[in-house]
Design a protein around this nucleic acid. Structure first.
Lengths: 118, 118
DNA sequence: TTTATATTTCGTCAAATAACGAAATGAAAG
DNA sequence: CTTTCATTTCGTTATTTGACGAAATATAAA
């Protein structure tokens, strides 16, 4: 499939759009995204693979966790990401997502996962 | 559905993408687009309604014909259309489409439709 | 090495989508 | 007013997509 069509298809789903908007804030591990979207981990993983296949995001393994971040190379995907970042006003859901990933709640959620083992 | 998601969904189909690329050249009536894409008129009409619903294109009735053109108002759709126009290299199919709508063949096709009645 | 945890892959199911032809609509010509 | 032609709407069908849970994989901890 044409690369640009893949990009548009990838962005044409509201859950994937939410992921992109959260990744504008900072890179996130799969479990954080899963927690925010309230979907099954396998579903989130599939969404992430579609975004990655479109070269909108990239992954980075850190131990057990896999972190995803926006892909900012110089190409059409980066242009689109810039437009998405600068020109689309956040709706309620996006605002709530951003609030969530910046919250103490999600920080604790991650800490507990680590500390539980100590 | 969120307006921007509609835009991405609309562009995330290769036939609709071809339509947008042809409309970059000039406004076209439904039968010209149908001829270029080699799809059923009802299928093309549906694609056009999806693009219109996303506010990427607009229609203009002229007698029996309905012409469609790109929608250039100041909003996200216009930004995307600009990116699409300036940043995406044409592939073979798009080149062929552009050639077709600028050809003598399609001009004759339209003329015959009119003259047949005289 | 065994166990636990994070993520991905696989198989399945329901819903959405893209295609078509047939019928309906609307404008122009006879 | 009736017919003709371009387009749209409707109903159907095949394919794609988004969701899930179960099983597989990979890494860290015990």
């Amino acid at each position: 499939m044409k690369k640009e069509i893949k990009i548009f298809k990838a962005l044409g789903d509201s859950n994937r759009f939410r992921i992109i908007k959260m990744l504008e804030q900072r890179s996130l591990c799969v479990c954080e995204i899963t927690e925010a979207l309230e979907l099954a981990p396998s579903t989130v993983s599939k969404h992430l693979s579609i975004l990655k296949e479109a070269e909108l995001i990239d992954d980075l393994k850190k131990g057990k966790w896999v972190y995803y971040k926006l892909c900012k190379e110089v190409k059409f995907a980066a242009d689109i990401l810039k437009l998405v970042k600068t020109k689309i006003p956040n709706d309620e859901i996006i605002e709530k997502d951003i609030e969530f990933i910046n919250s103490e709640e999600i920080k604790k959620f991650c800490e507990i996962k680590i500390k539980e083992k100590k």
